[in-house]
Write a protein that binds this DNA or RNA. Structure first.
Lengths: 132, 132
DNA sequence: CTCGATTGTTTACCTAAGTAAATAATATAC
DNA sequence: GTATATTATTTACTTAGGTAAACAATCGAG
């Protein structure tokens, strides 16, 4: 059995826990942040656009968006095609975003600090190559 | 925002889904397999030994062991210290193990097939270095 | 020897992710 | 133009992971 796989799973959990800790003061969890950030970067998007881009199944996004809606980060608006719901960030969310972005950026830099720029690029390429 | 992190999260999900698919014919899920395999390699172990070694919290292991027990893979035995529960594989589990090991090994080899031996070693070292 | 601290496990409650199937609206084939 | 197929979203149910707190057994200080 290849020890690479437990290592990847374990490191993934470790990263998620650490990111959640960074996000907690802001009232978000990691999966919620990934959607808020996606909407911030790309503007209002349908549920399908979100789940296909983030490579997460539709029911997962439905649930997380429902939580974000209850917490006031996001609104569901009916699209032209009345099957689809367009998800938009609330003004409150846009207000809070800069501080969260700064905290996450700091977290990411710390997480990657042990690697040189070259090693970071190499790691990215290796994971992408393995992913195929 | 560093694209390495979404890539790692996404690839982790992809790997978990693929591993679950490999394990499904054998009636196991990935987290269950990690415990069964750990007990196979190390012999009967207490819950604490399992969660500390696998770097998963105790309640998570309690739950997964409970499922494995219901499914007949594992038994709980009271330890000398009567607080602790020793988890042992059942004979049925030991019988099924060789076929599962072969399937998982094949899966792992396919997953790393795009990387040379040197790249695999490099990837392992980079993740370990980043993990700290 | 007894009482408080520690340890091992479990329970309760939460987020996150998946599959399968239901539902509602739109497209398409005829 | 209507019946069928497809698409977008949701619901129901499952596994997996986490934190906080309860509980029971053991350890240790005095």
């Amino acid at each position: 059995m290849n020890p690479l796989f437990p290592l990847l799973f374990q490191y993934n959990r470790q990263l998620t826990i650490a990111l959640n800790e960074v996000l907690r003061p802001h009232g978000l969890f990691s999966a919620q942040w990934s959607i808020v950030y996606f909407l911030h970067r790309n503007g209002a998007q349908s549920l399908t656009q979100i789940w296909q881009t983030l490579s997460v199944e539709a029911p997962t996004v439905t649930r997380t968006v429902t939580r974000l809606e209850k917490l006031g980060w996001v609104m569901r608006v009916e699209g032209e095609d009345r099957r689809e719901k367009i998800i938009t960030l609330t003004p409150v969310a846009e207000d809070k975003l800069p501080a969260i972005k700064a905290a996450v950026r700091e977290f990411e830099q710390a997480a990657v600090a042990r690697l040189s720029k070259e090693e970071q690029a190499m790691l990215y390429q290796l994971v992408e190559k393995m992913k195929g």
